[in-house]
Simulated assay, not measured.
Amino acid sequence: MTETAKSPNGADRRIGERIRLQRLARDMSQQALAEALGITFQQIQKYERGTNRVSASRLQEIARVLQVPVMFFFDEKPSGQGATFPMPDSPQSQSLLRAYQAISDPGLQKQAVALVQTLAAVKK
């Protein structure tokens, strides 16, 4: 087996990042997600890092537990286009994600994104 075959695939990493993103947005620990799926938290860690592939049936279960459609885990950009998603590691970014998830109106969600993008563009 070559070294590149052992490294995580880009698509597997993106799916893992999306699992982590939604898990954190739901304020759920790896342990809680693992228990809901009947697997170990170590397996969740491997999924989130992209070191283990998520089967289609497992991805459906993860989507059900995290309350998102399966398509949430796939981005619009084709594989290899450099699509990455920042991980919300700070309490502030996790709080922002939870607040955004609580907005049910798609129009308000768009406005919230526009506001944050405007604030991000402001130079100090």
Rank of each mutant, 00 (worst) to 15 (best):
Q31F: 13
K46N: 11
A32D: 11
P8F: 02
A11I: 14
A25Y: 02
V65F: 00
Q30G: 12
V68T: 07
L119Q: 15
F72C: 02
I62C: 05
K110D: 10
Q43E: 05
D105Y: 01
T84L: 09
Q67I: 06
S104Y: 08
D12E: 09
D75P: 03
Q111T: 10
G82L: 04
V116P: 02
F85H: 14
T2F: 06
P78K: 08
A121G: 12
E17G: 01
E48L: 09
A99R: 07
Q45I: 03
P91M: 13
V116E: 01
M1L: 09
S55G: 15
L66V: 03
V116R: 07
S79N: 15
E17K: 08
S55C: 11
P69K: 09
E3Q: 12
Q45S: 06
P8A: 07
A11R: 14
E48I: 00
P91A: 10
L66W: 00
F73K: 02
G16R: 06
F85V: 15
V54H: 03
E35G: 07
E17W: 03
Q30V: 06
S104Q: 08
A83C: 11
Q109F: 07
D105E: 00
F73T: 00
I103N: 00
V116G: 04
A99H: 10
S90W: 04
R26H: 09
D89M: 12
F85D: 13
Q22I: 03
K6A: 15
V116C: 05
A114P: 03
Q94N: 07
V54P: 04
T84F: 13
F41W: 07
M1V: 08
G38M: 10
A36D: 05
M28H: 02
D105I: 00
I19P: 01
I62S: 04
A83R: 05
A56R: 14
A121I: 14
D89N: 13
R14E: 02
G38Y: 10
R23I: 01
F85W: 12
D105R: 02
E3V: 08
Q60S: 11
K110Q: 14
E3P: 03
T2D: 12
L97V: 13
T2G: 06
Q42R: 10
G80A: 08
V122K: 06
P91I: 06
Q22M: 03
T40L: 05
F73Y: 08
L97H: 06
V116K: 01
R58F: 14
A34C: 11
D75G: 13
A56T: 12
A83G: 05
R98N: 05
T4M: 10
I103E: 03
K77D: 14
K77M: 10
Q94D: 01
F73L: 05
K77I: 12
S93K: 07
R20A: 04
Y47S: 04
Q42M: 13
Q31V: 09
I15Q: 04
A83Q: 06
A5V: 06
E35T: 08
D89W: 11
A121P: 12
E61F: 08
A120G: 13
T4E: 11
Q67T: 04
L97C: 15
S7W: 07
A11K: 13
L97S: 06
L21V: 01
G107W: 03
A114W: 07
R14I: 00
S95V: 08
Q94C: 09
L21S: 02
G82H: 06
Q81P: 13
S90N: 09
D105L: 01
I103G: 00
K6D: 12
L59N: 01
